[in-house]
Structures are given as C-alpha cells and as structure tokens.
Deep mutational scan, measured.
Amino acid sequence: GKELVLALYDYQEKSPREVTMKKGDILTLLNSTNKDWWKVEVKATANDKTYERQGFVPAAYVKKL
C-alpha cells in the first residue's frame, strides 16, 4: 500500500517545488531516497473542491507512520 507520513511541524513552502503542511497533517509519501527532502502528496480543499499537490518537504519535519 501507500506509505504515509505525519507532519511534526508546520512548514511553509519557500519555492514552487515545495508544499505547505500543518502539524498533524497526514501525507502520502512518494519518494524518500533523498535524506533531506522527501516528496509527498498533499490533499487540500479549496472552494469545496479537493485537489492534490505533489512537492517536497524537509525530511526532519515528518515521520513515517
């Protein structure tokens, strides 16, 4: 199945390749080969529509579930 990670801290994206997350968010882990930056998929809701974004977050800010 898919691997999930838990956001340990809030993170505000600093570039278009990154994604914003809030502490407590559960994210889908896409790639953890880089030890510093993990690629995740974030589900977000805006205007009653759910959309998914993929991007990088600092590996130290998340932990595998």
Rank of each mutant, 00 (worst) to 15 (best):
K2M: 12
K2D: 08
K2V: 14
K2F: 13
E3A: 08
E3P: 10
V5E: 00
V5K: 00
A7T: 03
L8V: 06
Y9W: 11
D10E: 05
D10G: 07
Q12L: 10
Q12T: 15
Q12Y: 14
E13W: 05
K14E: 07
K14F: 05
S15N: 10
S15C: 08
P16V: 09
P16K: 10
E18G: 09
V19M: 08
V19S: 02
V19H: 01
V19W: 04
T20R: 05
T20E: 02
T20F: 06
T20A: 06
T20P: 06
K22S: 07
K23W: 04
G24Q: 02
D25H: 05
I26S: 02
L27H: 02
L27Q: 00
N31P: 03
N31M: 07
N31S: 12
S32L: 04
S32I: 06
S32V: 06
T33F: 08
T33G: 09
N34G: 09
N34Y: 09
K35A: 10
W37Q: 01
W37G: 02
W38A: 03
W38K: 02
W38H: 01
K39A: 07
K39E: 13
V40T: 00
V42N: 06
A44D: 10
T45Y: 12
T45S: 12
A46G: 12
N47L: 14
N47F: 11
N47K: 07
N47W: 12
D48G: 15
D48H: 10
K49G: 12
T50H: 10
T50C: 15
Y51P: 10
Y51E: 10
E52D: 14
E52R: 14
E52M: 15
Q54I: 14
Q54D: 07
Q54K: 08
Q54G: 05
F56R: 01
F56K: 01
P58A: 02
P58K: 04
P58C: 04
P58D: 02
A59M: 05
A60H: 13
A60I: 12
A60L: 10
A60N: 11
Y61D: 03
Y61N: 04
V62E: 03
V62M: 06
V62Q: 02
K64A: 07
L65W: 09
L65R: 02
L65F: 09
